[in-house]
Structures are given as C-alpha cells and as structure tokens.
Nucleic acid binder design. Structure first.
Lengths: 245, 245
DNA sequence: CGCCTGCTTGACCTCGCTCAAGGCCCGTGG
DNA sequence: CCACGGGCCTTGAGCGAGGTCAAGCAGGCG
C-alpha cells in the first residue's frame, strides 16, 4: 500500500470540511497514485507544460512562480503538505506559471483521466476539489493586496502569519514554533521586495520581538501581535468552513 | 423570455471553448435567472456575505476589491460582460472580498441550489465553470507578478493589454478602440500606485504614442508595442483553449 | 450658477532599491 | 584535518522611483 500516506492525508483534509461517506472514502482509497520525489530547486511543472496529472504534496515545500522578461521572479504562492499545487491543470490545459520545489518534496501524482472520472462519480468530492482551487484563488487575491498596498515589514508579517496558519491546520506547528526552510531570497520574491530590504525587515521584526527565525525554525511568541503588525486576518483561508454541496 | 440575453451570452462563452451538446444547450436555456441592475459604486456582494446565488455580468464593469485596515483599497480583479465574478461563492461560503460595480451593471443571478443541480447533471458544464474560476486565479497570479515586480508604467501597460484582450473576445472592441469607463483612481487601486503617479504614467504612455485615452474611449494604435511596453503575453488568459472533460 | 468628481501639475520627501563588500556556515576534495 | 568554494545572511552608502501634500482646472449635473 504505497499510497497510504496520500490516502490518509486526503481523508484528513476532507474531514476538516465535511464527513466522508463510506463510498467516498472507498473511492479515495481506490485512487491510483504514483509517489515521486523532487529535489530542491527542481521544477515540478513548468510554464508551457501540458500536464496529464495533478499532484498532492506529502512532504516539503514548493512554490508557484512567474519569471518576467526582465529575469525578475515573482513567487505567487507557497505550497505545503496536503496542498494540491497543480490541481488547476485538471481544467487548464497549459500551465501559465512554474511550480518548483523549494526543498526536497515528496509528491503523490494522479492521472487527470482518473481524477475526472472520480469527479463525475463523486459530486461532493468534485465540489471539494473545486473548493480547494477557490481557496488558492482567495490567497492570490490577498497577495495582490499585500504586495500592492502594504509596507515591506507588514508584507513579511502578513506572509509569515499566513504560512503559520496553514501549517497549523496540517499539524506542522509545535506550540508556537514552525519548521521553516525558506531563504530570505524566497521571501523577498514572494513579497516583491529586494533581498537586502527583506533582511532588514526581518531584523526589525526580530527587534520588535514579533518573530525569531533561526536554523530552520520560526517562532512566533505572540501570535496576536504579529497578526496586528501584518494586518492579518485568517478569514480568507476559509479553513474551517463546512462544505455545502 | 427575460433570460434571453443571459442564455445567449452563456452559450457564446461556452462555444468559444467547446461545442455544446443539444441537451447541454437545453439545460442552459432552462436555467432560471433573475435580472438585476446595480448602480455605479454600489456593492454586488460584500466581504463577509454568504450569498445564495452567483451572477453573470451582462453589461457594465465591476471589480473585486479588498479594503485594508489602513483604509487603502486594492482592486484585485476587473469583471466585464460575460464574466461570473462571484461564481466562487458557489463553493466558498463566506466572501473574503468585496465585489462592487464600477459603472452601472446589468447582472443575471442564479440560485446556488439550481447551479449545483446543473453541475451534477452536466459534468462538462461543471468542468467549464470550474475552468472559469481557474482562469480568474491565473489572472490573480499574473497581477501578483505585475504589482510585485514591474515599474509603474509597465504595470499600467500590462493592465490595459489585459483589459483589451478580454474585451476583444467578448466583442467589445471596435478595431483598435475600446469602451473605457474606469477612472484613474480605479486604475491606481488596481496597480498599487498612487493616483498622482498613475496620471503621470498614463501621460508617459500617451507621449510614447502607445495609447490614447479620452471620453470613455481607449485607443491602442499599436498593439504589439503596448504589449512589449507592458511585458504582456495573453497566454495566462487561456482564451482559446479547448475544454478537456 | 455652483458644486462635485475626476484630471493635472508642482514641490518635496522617503521608502526601498542597487551596488558593493564582508562574514558565516557547511559540504567537498586534497 | 584543513583549505577552498559556494550558499546565504548581513551591513554600509548613495540614489531614485514613486509617495504625499497642496492647489488649480475642467466638465457634467442638480
């Protein structure tokens, strides 16, 4: 049963939003997945690709990024475990952005044909997958606002709050500490500020005792304070919203 | 048949991506819609709302916007005719952003219950609606990059290219001219620059003969040149992509 | 006629960028 | 075991794109 970790992750993810019927659970267990490993800094899919499968991240952290003609790169999303970063390719033939692993990733891939059949047979699960892509879109909206309107320090605080909130629901948090393997360059590409200024912004957040960040561990001593600094409200993550279908 | 304009618009939109089967066409014609008018600057739905219907814009222009604690507003999307701006509420219970009419809008609303039944009965149309929300997401991704990495002038050029490309496919273009009723404030809130600087950026584009903009009409004399100035490529709009379902 | 909304212009200032260099940690090979 | 190299982080200095504040102007509408 090599697909066990995937099945467990998927079921856990669903049951945060609604209760699975026995048939639905069975359908998930029947899904044929392929486990793959992608090394750090390697692409999972690239702009222009026409993938025939979508995948869930089981371990590691990836991002969606766009490289402009100028060579500058913008990260438009981070993906952590239990995310389906390229689910969109199910109904978007050609990838319009890159998806790259930022740390080594373990992913579970499912063929689109299989997924489409799965969707017509399980309307509720179809609705749920659709829902997941809508949450991704909600995050993009928020990022537009983040990058468009906030000061550098606020952007960073906001981003860290988001990552923390998302890690928490998938059980990656340990008290107020979170595994953290993004570089300052990653963060700067996600927030649209230079690496140099990212460094200074992080220092300022540290000085204000809002975060501590070292050796792959992020600590947020006072959640409320950081949220305030980043003008963050978790609503847009739609985390505990029951599914209606 | 008050829903005629809606039916025609919806069918036209579908057939740009795939050929409707007779039953599908019939299902669309059977959809009960309510026509409504929203005055300029009035909300269509508001952050925090839990709508029970979704709507298609038949006339006018609307936007999705987020207002931050600071009072600053970020527009994260524009919606023109044939768009389903709040389709996302079908599977996202609580609105995480506002949708407001920027000019007077004529919209066609459909109950979510109806839409859900429609989706389970017509898997291909379900896939198509899902697809539409994914295109919206692709646009957000691009906006993150636009606001995060480009200079003011590039941002404006990019935005205008996008609007032009989208207007063209819904038949709003007349040669190289487009109806244009957004204010400079709207544009500045969409690109994350100040109104003052938006004004100067537009002037610069005018001086470079890339656009002319007056009395509700935008003219793009040389499409290729403006695209180059805005580093724009229409791929992310997924305009003529055949549906696979 | 007067007001309000949207456009335009000028002057000044600042946040964040760029360029440049140095330090630290860790993995690799001699 | 140590030297070397390459990421990544850090710091300094100068500069510029774009923000803010303020005021004037034009046109449409009650």
């Amino acid at each position: 049963m090599p697909n066990r970790p995937f099945v467990l992750a998927f079921i856990a993810k669903c049951e945060r939003s609604f209760s699975l019927a026995p048939e639905e659970r069975a359908a998930i267990e029947r899904l044929p997945v392929r486990i793959e490993y992608v090394a750090a800094d390697r692409p999972i899919v690239r702009q222009g690709d026409k993938p025939s499968q979508s995948s869930m991240i089981l371990k590691g952290i990836a991002c969606t990024s766009i490289t402009l003609a100028s060579g500058r790169r913008q990260i438009s999303a981070f993906h952590i475990q239990q995310d389906f970063p390229d689910l969109l390719s199910l109904h978007l033939r050609t990838m319009d952005s890159d998806m790259v692993a930022l740390t080594e990733c373990k992913i579970a891939s499912i063929e689109h044909v299989v997924l489409r059949a799965f969707c017509t047979e399980n309307p509720r699960l179809c609705a749920f997958l659709w829902h997941l892509t809508l949450v991704d879109a909600a995050i993009y909206r928020q990022w537009v606002a983040n990058v468009g309107q906030r000061s550098a320090e606020q952007r960073v605080a906001h981003l860290l709050c988001e990552l923390a909130a998302r890690m928490r629901v998938v059980g990656m948090a340990d008290g107020s500490t979170y595994p953290f393997h993004l570089t300052q360059t990653d963060l700067s590409e996600a927030t649209g500020i230079s690496t140099v200024h990212m460094n200074r912004s992080l220092q300022s957040l540290r000085a204000r005792k809002l975060i501590s960040l070292q050796k792959g561990v992020l600590t947020i001593p006072d959640d409320r304070a950081l949220r305030k600094a980043g003008d963050f409200s978790a609503d847009y993550l739609h985390q505990a919203e029951p599914l209606r279908a």
